[in-house]
Nucleic acid binder design. Structure first.
Lengths: 250, 250
DNA sequence: GAGTGGTCTAGACCACACA
DNA sequence: GTGTGGTCTAGACCACTCC
């Protein structure tokens, strides 16, 4: 009867999840493959329904699998869009365009829906940055291949853009940045803050996110060449759909 | 008996979770506050244990709450470290150092543990970028205030750094970049790819991540001024501990 | 219609925290 | 010791998908 300080075994649901995860990460189960369902796990391991569900929920919450009602649980895929930060310093100019991760580089077309434009009282942080209590706000949703991938909320100082096309649905050729240029306030410098977190419920709905998908949050300030902040843009990206790339000298 | 096409009510566990979430996001429940426990929810809503657990698990998987065994479920806090990409173009130089999100800017000291240095056969992606089949690999873990926040794996072309301090624990003054400089290969340009995803199990352990915490993955390539890639560094950051900042001109 | 995942109940035993 | 969350069983009904 050896009773030594054995490291406690992980619970059953976790061991099952570990096995399935390894099958996914090793490539035994590939993109879109069907995982063993609840009934299969119950039979195979002699466990209760809730325990089988718990095992599957681990993988779902890790973003490795997606449940489909009435059908099964499937291996999830990752095929991101590449978003470049700086364009001028783009590393294509000095490297061979090398990248560590694969991505869909063909410029798939964006579509924009759910445009909303309003004049609002700015939130504290935005008011502080733009030095303006009132702002024009442009809310948009971007989709690629019919799937929503990004939410964007742009804020402009109200007095700066009043009576310009920036307050209209159709901003004209070149978009809002061209209109800012018309005003003599062309954006020249950018500061981007990047975070990641789990999505809020409305983001889950608007981006149609499965469980286990974080969002990347980008807060971007656009400055003119003289250092005047002219736009604050908060973007919410489906993390499973994006790779961000930033190139810079030391 | 009106029986009109009512939008189906969300399940109980979700309604409970929604209520708790609102309490957290509105500030009624603050950092570190205790949420109603399983027993409290069972009594208050007249539901079974598993249902109460399910409601709490929603918030836990969203990263809004953290369970503590034998104690309760608590509201989680977010107090990130700010990590700057470019230093030369640092936006302090032309802006007023404005930022959208709060962060702990006081430079809290890093500690490094778990240093591992090995000569290895490179993974495909790394071999392709460095144009080198064999690499020296430096694995490190960084902690702040005693809490692990970042894992880092640096790869260097084996033939380039052989017999230098880069293959030693003590890399000398200025660290590995200074040693690369000694070789006439000082890094001058960087390309960073940024992703976010849920952590793998070993990352969860090494970073001591609670459920509902994504990781930010940074893949960074360092080039010399002549465009020679000299380092590939993959960093895994606790997303709840970081804000990344990138400044650039258009 | 058969099979799947989604929700829910009513129990049980355990390890752990806290007083 | 009491209360907490962690794991697990054995059922149930439902909505949905696929054949």
């Amino acid at each position: 009867m050896q009773q030594s300080p054995v490291p406690p075994e992980p619970p059953i649901y976790r061991r099952i999840a570990d096995g399935l995860r390894e099958a996914i990460l090793s490539g035994d189960l590939r993109d879109g493959d069907r995982l063993p369902g609840e009934n299969a796990l119950m039979a195979q391991y002699g466990i209760a329904r809730a325990t089988a569900r718990q095992a599957l929920s681990v993988l779902i919450n890790e973003g490795l699998a997606v449940p489909k009602r009435g059908s099964g649980v499937y291996v999830r895929q990752f095929r991101p869009i590449r978003r470049h930060g700086s364009r001028r310093l783009s590393h294509d100019q000095w490297g061979q365009g090398q990248a560590i991760w694969d991505s869909d580089t063909r410029g798939r077309p964006y579509t924009v829906d759910d445009v909303n434009i309003d004049r609002e009282v700015a939130e504290d942080a935005v008011a502080r940055v733009l030095n303006s209590a009132e702002v024009w706000v442009r809310r948009r949703r971007y989709s690629v291949d019919g799937r929503p991938v990004q939410l964007s909320v742009s804020h402009f100082p109200a007095t700066l853009v009043e009576n310009t096309a920036i307050t209209q649905h159709d901003t004209g050729p070149g978009g809002v940045y061209a209109r800012l240029g018309d005003l003599g306030h062309a954006p020249a410098r950018f500061s981007e803050e990047v975070r990641a977190r789990m999505p809020h419920p409305h983001e889950t709905v608007q981006l149609d996110l499965p469980a286990g998908t974080p969002v990347i949050v980008i807060g971007r300030i656009a400055y003119t060449s003289t250092g005047l902040p002219v736009e604050v843009n908060e973007m919410i990206l489906d993390a499973a759909s994006y790779v961000l790339q930033y190139d810079f000298d030391s």
